[in-house]
Simulated scan of single mutants.
Amino acid sequence: AYGSAMAPLFMNLTFWIGAFMLVVILRQEVDDEGIPNLTLGQRYWGRFLFLAVLAVAQALICCAGVLAVGVQTASAPALFIAAACASLAYLSIIFSLSVVLQHIGKGICIVLVFAQIPGATGLYPIEMTSGFFQAIYPLFPFTYGIGAMREAICGFYGTQYETALATLGLFFVIGMAFGLLVRPLMANVNRMVARQVREGGLFNGENVEVPMRPYRLSQIMRVLSDKSSYETDLARRYARFSRWYPRIMRGAIVLGVVVPVALAVVFALTPAEKVWVLTGALLWLILVFVALVVVESLRYSFERQLKLGDMSDAHLMKLAEATRTVQAAVAGEGEGAGDEADRAAARYYDHG
């Protein structure tokens, strides 16, 4: 039946939106209250596994519901397995983007769902879509979630079902690797964004439970060797950046408004393919937000480096020692080095 044939698209859309709403409604961060010395990996896995239980439960309830209303299946167990695998893969992608890139990551998740509805063979055979979607549809996780569920509903052909599940597993691994490996590198940016979100008062924000990345040892040594030269050079570069800062911000805001308005006019007055225009507008807004974050990160980095010049030599020596401890822990040197690094980072880097 037509409804059974369309069920994979709408079910996968449900899984994606369900996983996204879990990330939006529930906290992403895990504090260590009552469980001291949690590592970043343990925090990430702990929150993800909690969300995974809810996401899989949503998927299983959805499958039971569609079977109850009469969706036909070649294999109901295969449908449940495909739904669980797709939900976990989507949650892995959504959670990693949201944790690593904060609100920008959530925006990317919204763009992805818009792009995947027409571009993942959910509505029409891929040969009936534009060349753009024919080129990129293998990169969409929806393509394989829909494919696996179509096999379970319409019947199995060769190893299509197993291939789709294996590819969903690959998306799961990529999402987890991105979250676990890239998040520590984005610690300072995440903390800055979270602080500004809270100060803005428009969006709900939560503290980022990630230790601030340490100063580079070379920076500390340079201040210790010649503080006057360091302060003069940094002040000169910061002054040049400060002159350009308001112009860049104004330009980004103007372009962030003008380009979407222009695309809206194109959308309304031309026969251009609407999904291209809409996707272009969403991608442009994300690009503008990324540019603003980069500029703010540069300003934050300058302000953070300026603090080095105000520190005493004794404090700088302690800072250098803490930096070496953190570097040793990252390299896996020494028994208990990870806990010591956490304490050092909390003491010397977790301020303001």
Rank of each mutant, 00 (worst) to 15 (best):
Y2G: 05
Y2D: 08
G3K: 10
P8V: 07
M11L: 12
L13K: 01
T14P: 07
F15W: 10
F15I: 07
F20T: 01
F20E: 03
V23A: 01
V23L: 09
L26C: 12
R27W: 14
Q28M: 10
Q42F: 13
Y44A: 00
Y44G: 02
W45H: 05
W45R: 04
W45P: 03
G46V: 11
L49E: 06
F50Y: 12
F50V: 09
L51N: 02
A52Q: 11
A52M: 13
V53W: 12
V53R: 09
L54Q: 03
V56I: 15
A59L: 06
L60F: 11
C62Q: 14
V66D: 02
V66I: 14
A68F: 15
V69Q: 06
V71F: 07
Q72E: 06
A78D: 03
A82T: 06
A83T: 02
C85S: 06
L88E: 01
I94G: 00
Q102Y: 10
H103I: 14
K106S: 15
I108T: 03
C109G: 02
V113S: 04
A115V: 14
P118R: 07
P118A: 05
A120G: 01
A120K: 02
E127N: 07
M128V: 07
T129H: 08
F133D: 01
A135C: 06
A135Q: 07
I136C: 00
Y137W: 15
I146N: 00
I146D: 00
G147E: 13
A148C: 15
M149N: 05
R150Q: 12
R150G: 08
E151W: 10
C154P: 05
C154W: 15
C154G: 12
F156S: 03
A164Q: 14
A164R: 15
L165P: 00
L165I: 06
T167C: 09
T167Y: 11
L168K: 05
G175D: 03
F178R: 00
L185R: 05
M186I: 15
N188Y: 12
V193I: 13
A194R: 13
E199P: 04
E199Q: 08
N207I: 15
R213S: 09
P214H: 02
Y215E: 00
R216N: 04
L217V: 12
V223N: 01
L224Y: 06
L224H: 04
D226Y: 10
K227S: 10
Y230G: 03
D233R: 11
R237P: 04
R240M: 04
F241W: 05
W244Y: 11
R247P: 01
R250L: 12
G251V: 11
I253H: 04
V257W: 08
V258W: 13
P260C: 02
L263R: 04
V266N: 06
A268D: 14
P271E: 11
E273C: 03
L278A: 03
G280K: 10
L283R: 05
W284D: 01
L285V: 13
L287Q: 03
V288H: 08
V290H: 11
A291W: 13
L292K: 04
V294E: 12
V295S: 04
V295K: 04
S297Q: 14
L298T: 14
S301K: 11
R304T: 08
Q305T: 11
D313C: 10
D313V: 14
L316Q: 08
L319R: 00
A322Y: 07
A322Q: 02
V326W: 03
G332H: 09
E333N: 06
E335L: 12
Y348C: 01
Y349M: 09
H351I: 15
G352P: 08
